[in-house]
């Protein structure tokens, strides 16, 4: 598989995985609040493990880890890390669409910064590729 398609697939899988994880946890913890008494959340464990959205999230994140290793097998870490950070943008947008979470002005600024950062790395990579071909 070409690196570009691997990167796009990894970003999609990671974002959907995180959103599904969030969806499942929200369904299970709705109306439950133990504040900072973290151990009390353990009583929710059986219903968390039985939640379809949560399970789908875990499977997708395992798939992402395999894709992450595949990317690292053929590309530099200093390329893979900034580029896959686009997941943060996709997670924010998917969380708005699927979980109806609000996006604040500050978060829009963050989305813009990450997007520009990913574009800079991507364009730098394209230039590198042309140089190597010459």
């Amino acid at each position: 598989m070409r690196l570009v398609s691997l990167v796009i697939l990894a970003i999609l899988v990671q974002s959907l995985g995180n959103v599904m994880l969030g969806k499942g946890i929200k369904q299970v913890t709705a109306g439950f609040d133990a504040g900072l008494e973290v151990w009390k959340y353990l009583s929710l464990l059986p219903s968390v493990i039985a939640n379809p959205s949560f399970l789908l999230g875990v499977l997708l994140l395992i798939a992402f880890f395999v894709l992450h290793l595949a990317m690292l097998s053929k590309a530099d870490l200093s390329f893979v890390m900034p580029v896959t950070a686009f997941s943060y943008v996709l997670i924010a947008v998917l969380a708005k669409l699927i979980l109806s979470e609000a996006i604040t002005l500050f978060q829009w600024i963050g989305i813009l910064l990450i997007t520009v950062g990913v574009m800079v790395v991507g364009m730098g990579e394209a230039r590198r590729g042309r140089k190597e071909q010459r």
């Binding site: 900034p82 990913v118 790395v121 730098g124 230039r127």
Partner: peptide, 9 residues
């Protein structure tokens, strides 16, 4: 490019 990208991200 990678440095600028890393800082922006």
């Amino acid at each position: 490019a990678r440095w600028i990208g890393t800082v922006l991200v």
